[in-house]
Structures are given as structure tokens and as C-alpha cells.
């Protein structure tokens, strides 16, 4: 096994560990928004590490280039998805955790709902 392959396997291990703990956060945290935070951050970075590790281990251009493209794509899309999900779940009526400190989005959510009511 060459030294490149060992570096790649180290990347893959770190990525898999991050994925694991991200999903653990999905189970442990108390409300949708905290779960979304933990899971989005950890799973995005973990999957990117796995993709980079794949590019290093295989070292064939056909696989490596696609892996890098896929990593760029995930970096760009996954925060957008998280943002849409957070907004959607607040507007669908899921409140924050009981022990939350502050919530400034409430007035804005009412505003959005009022606007949509007028549009219909």
C-alpha cells in the first residue's frame, strides 16, 4: 500500500467518524433546529472528507474528478437545503425548544403569513 493510499484512508476514517457523530446529534438533540444544525454541519464535512479520500485512494482521473465535482456540489447545496428546511419547518408551526433563550423570528413569520394570506 502506497503512502498516498494511507493518507486517503485516513481522510475516509475521519469522514466516517464525523458522519457517525452527526447522526448521533440527530438522535440526541431536543428540537428540529438543533438537530438540523448538528446534522448538516457534521454530515456535510464528513461526506466531503470521504469524497476527497476516494479521490486520493483511487487516483484514477475518471473517479477523482467526479469525486471533487461532487464535493463542490455538496458544499454549495447542503446549506441551501438546511436553510429552506429551517424556514419551512418554522412556517409550518414547529416551535423552538422550551428552554430556548430568544426568538426574534416570530414577528417576521407572522408578517410572511399575513402577506401570503393577502396574495390568495
Amino acid at each position: 500500500m502506497s503512502s498516498n493510499a494511507i493518507i486517503g484512508y485516513i481522510f475516509i476514517t475521519i469522514g466516517a467518524i464525523f458522519d457517525f457523530f452527526g447522526c448521533m446529534g440527530l438522535v440526541r438533540f431536543p428540537d428540529v433546529y438543533n438537530r438540523l444544525q448538528a446534522a448538516t454541519k457534521c454530515v456535510t464535512l464528513g461526506t466531503i472528507f470521504i469524497l476527497i479520500g476516494t479521490a486520493i485512494v483511487t487516483a484514477t482521473p475518471a473517479i477523482a474528478i467526479k469525486a471533487i465535482l461532487c464535493a463542490v456540489f455538496i458544499v454549495l447545496t447542503s446549506p441551501t437545503g438546511a436553510h429552506a428546511l429551517a424556514r419551512g419547518s418554522f412556517l409550518s408551526g414547529v416551535n423552538l425548544w422550551d428552554k430556548s433563550v430568544t426568538n426574534k423570528f416570530k414577528e417576521r413569520a407572522e408578517e410572511i403569513k399575513a402577506q401570503r394570506g393577502e396574495a390568495r
Binding site: A16, V32, R35, T40, V43, T44, T47, I50, S78, V94
Partner: peptide, 26 residues
């Protein structure tokens, strides 16, 4: 407990599966 929780989990599952596919590629 809510539909949002399930949606979040589906989103995350999709990203984890990408990692799985990479393993099969290796």
C-alpha cells in the same frame, strides 16, 4: 414527533448514502 424531523432525517440520509456509494467505488 413532527413532519419536519422526518424531513431533516431524510435529507441527512441522502448525504450519508453518497458516502456509501463512494466506498463501493473504491
Amino acid at each position: 414527533p413532527t413532519a419536519s424531523d422526518r424531513t431533516v432525517a431524510i435529507d441527512i440520509l441522502g448525504t450519508v448514502v453518497v458516502g456509501f456509494v463512494c466506498l463501493s467505488a473504491i
